[in-house]
Simulated scan of single mutants.
Amino acid sequence: MPVISTDIDTGELTMTLVAEFAADTARVWQLWADPRQLERWWGPPTWPATFTAHDLRPGGTTRYYMTGPDGDTAAGEWEFTAVDEPSSLAFDDYFADENGERSRDMPVSHMSAELDSAGDERTRMTIVTRFESIEQLQQLTEMGMEEGMREAVSQIDALLAG
């Protein structure tokens, strides 16, 4: 399993996931850069993602939806705030309504991913999610965000092997 740790820090209002993969940083970067590869790991296995737009540049947006086992969908949108290929990216993560519009009822989280060489064709990926309040952190963790991220990232080894 590639996930090394997850940590929720209520003082800093963050959730940090650390994973390590048997691939160099350029290869792991492609998991973020290519929407077809994102579809194969973003979201837990029972809620696979479909990316309908992907503009990986500062100011660019990505739109996607995840489909649950009963056919329910949950949509999201990312707005990229920083991109430094192949080592890091950051984005604001929005929930979207059934029309693909940003939801005003759900919290926005601020995510960053750092890709660092871990030696011998290995990459360590650190994903930090920042929340705007303890209430938002609690709401999203109660919705299963930590478990969902662990499940999603745990799919990457199979993708890299294929």
Rank of each mutant, 00 (worst) to 15 (best):
residue 140 L to I: 13
residue 16 T to M: 05
residue 61 T to N: 04
residue 50 T to H: 08
residue 19 A to H: 01
residue 54 H to Y: 05
residue 29 W to K: 06
residue 93 D to Q: 08
residue 10 T to P: 02
residue 149 M to Y: 12
residue 79 E to I: 14
residue 147 E to I: 15
residue 99 N to W: 00
residue 141 T to F: 12
residue 41 W to S: 11
residue 51 F to K: 03
residue 85 E to H: 08
residue 37 Q to K: 15
residue 22 A to R: 04
residue 128 V to S: 10
residue 11 G to Q: 11
residue 31 L to S: 05
residue 123 T to N: 07
residue 20 E to R: 09
residue 96 A to W: 00
residue 48 P to M: 09
residue 29 W to N: 06
residue 123 T to F: 06
residue 94 Y to D: 06
residue 120 D to G: 04
residue 44 P to L: 07
residue 156 I to W: 02
residue 67 T to H: 07
residue 54 H to F: 05
residue 130 R to T: 14
residue 87 S to R: 14
residue 156 I to N: 05
residue 15 M to C: 09
residue 115 L to F: 08
residue 13 L to G: 01
residue 108 V to K: 00
residue 50 T to K: 12
residue 140 L to Q: 12
residue 24 D to F: 02
residue 150 R to S: 13
residue 45 P to I: 08
residue 42 W to Q: 09
residue 74 A to T: 08
residue 107 P to E: 12
residue 111 M to F: 00
residue 26 A to K: 08
residue 20 E to H: 00
residue 61 T to F: 02
residue 97 D to I: 04
residue 87 S to W: 06
residue 86 P to K: 05
residue 159 L to Q: 13
residue 162 G to R: 03
residue 53 A to C: 01
residue 89 L to H: 06
residue 111 M to N: 09
residue 68 G to V: 08
residue 92 D to M: 11
residue 98 E to S: 11
residue 97 D to P: 03
